[in-house]
Nucleic acid binder design. Sequence first.
RNA 1: GCCCACGUAGCUCAGGCGGUAGAGCACCUCCUUGGUAAGGAUGAGGUCACCAGUUCAAAUCUGGUCGUGGGCUCCA
Length: 816
Amino acid sequence: MPYQDIEKKWQSRWRDAAIFKTPDDPGEDKYYLMEMFAYPSGDVHIGHFRNYSIGDLVWRYMKMRGKNIMHPFGWDSFGLPAEQAAIKHKIHPGEWTEKNIATGKSTLQALGMSFDWDREIATSRPYYYKWTQWVFVQLYKMGLAYQKEAAVNWCPECNTVLANEQVVGGCCWRHDDTPVERKFLKQWFFKTTAYAQRLLDDLDKLEHWSDALKNIQRYWIGRSEGANIKFFIAETGDELPIFTTRPDTVYGVTFMAIAPEAELMKKLVEVCPNREAVENYIRESSLKSEIERVAEDREKDGVPTGLHVRNPFNGEDVPLFVADYVLAGYGSGAVMAVPAHDQRDFEFARKYNIDIKVVINPEGAILDADEMTEAFTEHGIMTNSAQFDDMPSEEAKSKIVDFGEENGFAERAIQFRLRDWLISRQRYWGAPIPIIHCKTCGEVPVPEESLPVVLPHVEDFLPKGRSPLADVHEFIDTTCPKCGEPARRDADTMDTYVCSSWYELRYLDPHNDSAPFDIEEAKKWMPVDFYIGGIEHATSHLLYFRFIAKALFDLGWLPVDEPVVKMFNHGMVCDEHGDKMSKSKGNVISPIVLAKEHGVDVSRTAMLFFAPPGHEISWNEDGMKGAERFLRKVDNLITADIDRTAVACSIDGLFERDAELFKALNRTIKAVTDDIEGMAYNTAIARLMEFMNIVTPEDMTNSRIAFTIADSLTKLLAPFAPHLAEELNERLGHKDFVVNREWPAFDESVIAHDTVEIGVQVNGEVRGAREISPDAAQDEAVASALEVSNIARNIEGKRIVKVIYVPGRILNIIAK
RNA sequence: GCCCACGUAGCUCAGGCGGUAGAGCACCUCCUUGGUAAGGAUGAGGUCACCAGUUCAAAUCUGGUCGUGGGCUCCA
């Protein structure tokens, strides 16, 4: 039967039998399997095909292992591309999105993917985003959603702000040649920093996440231990707190630096003697992009404010500079500068002829500030530091903080690199932020019973630098839920990462009208046992996902505080030259075309065979041939007339060829099972290919275990080529689906080989090999080895002084 | 620049707590065959990136060098 017909036949039978349906009561054997859902742009692409093929393989294997599985699917259907495409094609984003969802879904179904479509969700549908808004409101009530005016990332191309996680190398994640600008705006944030410590600590619980991924998150969260020290503006007495990880260098402070956008700067600019120069500097640096400011070759610059800062430790006054190498968003936005012991401060000091004061000497040496060519940043021995002199600097670090704490101007502190998550977007196609701004009551969350705040249908959603919703009066104008007076809705929509930060929970209970999900369902299914998706979301989605789960856990809505037990990151799919596939390069391969030309089973077997699932693959058409030949071989081997009584479940009574086949089969089952468990799908397929090189069509008519072989092989094939496996299973006379049958077992005791070929070395050089029993005695092994002429020749005329014999592995004869 | 992976046959990858270098694909040769861009059987192909060390024995362990990929990019 042509493969297209086989595919259609089984896909429709699977559908009729509802085999992908999630069981109601999964019990102990529950298995929540999830792949990252898709953004519906056009059709699913080859990367999706890889992602979902891995998931489908896992579903089929786990099903045969007796698991009760939930395997849902959905669409991350809010977001910018819908607007852009809509503008281009003159069609509403909603319409465009739904059309793509329909296309994508039909493709996934044609690919035979084992999704439970009854649980399908789309984040842009009101009954999904109603609950996204509900999540927002809960976070608001917990104090985890707040508004602040801050210097934020702005993409001039998208015409919207971006979260820190959406800035890649100083550019917009969507426009990698558009430097992000800085704007001062009042925006909504989620307080991810409140969970920084837990997000970090709990990484240790995630045994089944790769170290690579966890390291990326650790680095992104970026915990630093140090101290907050209260400096003072000498002229005004205002506090200037700073954070430092090097309190041991505090006696070496020779100037202070503050970021142009720092909160404190707003006030200081009013009082500083060099006001004009400072204002100019602030203006100039605000025009610079992040890229320009961070450029490696750029010299650090700044201007003196004319103000001075008093060091509480020694009472010294040092000049305060405004300098844009200082980050506004980290700590207080100001730093103490110790040129002798910090490279950045050193460069700045040299440029502006600021004093360099050594307070730590390397052990056994004395530094001379005038001679230094770079900062000394290691640990050493304290000097010029009052009562801390001569102490090892590591010790002084804590002593100095103690001293500061006793005197009330320092305290131990932890800082994180992680920033709060900026979630407002000045775009149309997203979930409206459920907040109403009232003149008298301030910001008021939309009452839960009034959700969803429905995104109005508008014709003009072109981005203009502020939310398109701001001009939609029917939407914006409302009344305050508290006082009933006229009020205005928040015009911004939420970052789409908010939508995807909790979707695993909506899958639990996607049709629930009165709650985001039933907590009982969460108890049954959470956490997700296996989550599969690309690593590119390491510091965005996967961090937000963990954050929201923790927040909902704290709120009592979730029984677990980590959403995912095992995370797997698959590799990219590139073209045959190793280039990333993209529409602009015209090198994309469509899975639906592959399915038409080669069949689903061949395409996915080939893809799984190309490389381990974690590696990048280079697509090559030639590789298809191998998979095609392999599947055809299996198809030809397993015929309907195999004797159904040719069965054996043990090696007893089997001889010669039958025994050989039985052993080979058991080895294959073990190898394929181990490989699937270890996610080495490529080698699992290679094992099956090897087995196909052993077994012959003659065996199928002659062997006393022909049926056992055919039956086991069919089952082993099921996760890789599900349609063909069903067909073969039926051919063998089974009524039930192959995926409903049990994964084959193997007999460990027959797997060992009777004799092994061991290498024979003379003086460490391999000179030959002997086939002997793995438990042969040493004398026996040596005698056998001497029968090999090449070995005998090498020993001739010499005396055997030593024999190293490891049974079953090696024989090494040392002769002199 | 810092951190993390990785470097094995033409290709994609196994192996690796030291003990004869493996698979599949591709390739060579032969056989079969009027549905053939098919089937079968054989075979060739590697100084395991490089250098040094430990050892009876190193692809495997240790140190260094080079190369590839990824993360971070002034986080004080």
